[in-house]
């Protein structure tokens, strides 16, 4: 699975002020750190970027490109800032990707032309005028709306990264099934298209020390169902190991749970058992509580 490092984010207490004050030091340092972690893309998340968004995006992209030519995901809801980034971003190692375009007419009309003009990829976010879809079927409807527009703007399928929207398991456990079930149909309803997701959202709100096991386990499940990339914490070495095909024993165990096979839990180490419990939680077979690993 390809990895998009999510750590270049304006919400960070050190990076946010550095971006606003155009202090290149912390930005460069973070870019170098992420680049050293074996990621395929770096996500530059500026959020809404309402004030001087275009200038900020241009500057951050240039600053990051000074230290790495890993391709970038440009992540902002400000269309002007998006275009400013696309104009200057390096593309030696691959196309930049617009993150993201929801199934709202004004977003599609504004951003798909930019993808065409600047030969960029796009994240097609399954979010509609009515907000977050409630299940896999509503995700399917939103995908059909997005696909029609992608075709209209002649975007190449492999450049469109479908994002089914990962939601937190602690408060919206049923919605996790919506995302998982959508991925089960993904290969049939979006042949040739790419896919990605904001993986860390699965563990948003869960106890901090338990976030990695949720992220890792869900990455294995989604990857198995055809998810090709994920926007992730670049510094989770175990997650990277899973994405690169490592930890085969644990992966097999998680997939046994996905396939509903019997698992002899008595013979498992604590570590292995934790992954089984987490898989069952993510598959909706047990109800979430912060202490799920203690049960």
């Amino acid at each position: 699975m390809k990895l998009v490092g999510e750590n270049m984010n304006v919400m960070s207490k050190t990076l946010g002020p550095a971006m606003r004050e155009r202090d290149a030091g912390p930005i460069r340092k973070m870019a170098e750190n992420i680049a050293s972690k074996n990621v395929d893309f770096i996500d530059i998340n500026l959020g809404p970027a309402r004030k001087q968004g275009a200038e900020m995006m241009e500057w951050v992209v240039k600053t990051v490109n000074e230290v790495t030519d890993i391709p970038l995901f440009l992540d902002t809801s400000n269309v002007e800032a998006m275009e400013a980034g696309l104009k200057v971003v390096k593309r030696d190692k691959g196309k930049p990707v617009i993150n993201s375009v929801s199934a709202r007419p004004e977003r599609m009309e504004a951003l798909f032309p930019l993808a065409k003009t600047y030969e960029a990829g796009v994240v097609a976010l399954l979010l509609g005028v009515d907000g977050i879809p409630r299940d896999e079927n509503e995700r399917g409807i939103l995908w059909s709306e997005l696909m029609v527009k992608c075709t209209e703007f002649e975007l190449a399928p492999q450049d469109v990264y479908v994002d089914p929207i990962v939601l937190p398991v602690n408060t919206q456990q049923n919605q996790v099934q919506g995302c998982t079930n959508f991925m089960m149909m993904f290969r049939d309803i979006a042949p040739g298209y790419s896919s990605t997701c904001g993986l860390s959202n699965i563990s948003n709100g869960a106890p901090e020390h338990l976030r990695p096991i949720l992220n890792q386990t869900y990455s294995v499940i989604l990857n198995h169902l055809g998810m090709e990339s994920a926007i992730v914490d670049a510094f989770d070495a175990d997650l990277t190991a899973f994405a690169r095909g490592g930890k085969a024993e644990i992966r097999d165990l998680i997939l046994k749970a996905v396939n509903g096979e019997d698992i002899d839990t008595a013979s498992l180490s604590k570590d292995m058992l934790d992954y089984v419990k987490t898989a069952k939680l993510l598959l909706g077979q047990s109800l979430y509580s912060d202490s799920w690993l203690e049960l």
């Binding site: 602690n170 109800l287 509580s289 912060d290």
Partner: peptide, 15 residues
């Protein structure tokens, strides 16, 4: 009014 928190509190009381 939250099923997950209800479960968690019962676990904590059990602990």
């Amino acid at each position: 009014i939250d099923v997950n928190l209800a479960k968690q509190l019962n676990i904590l009381l059990g602990n």
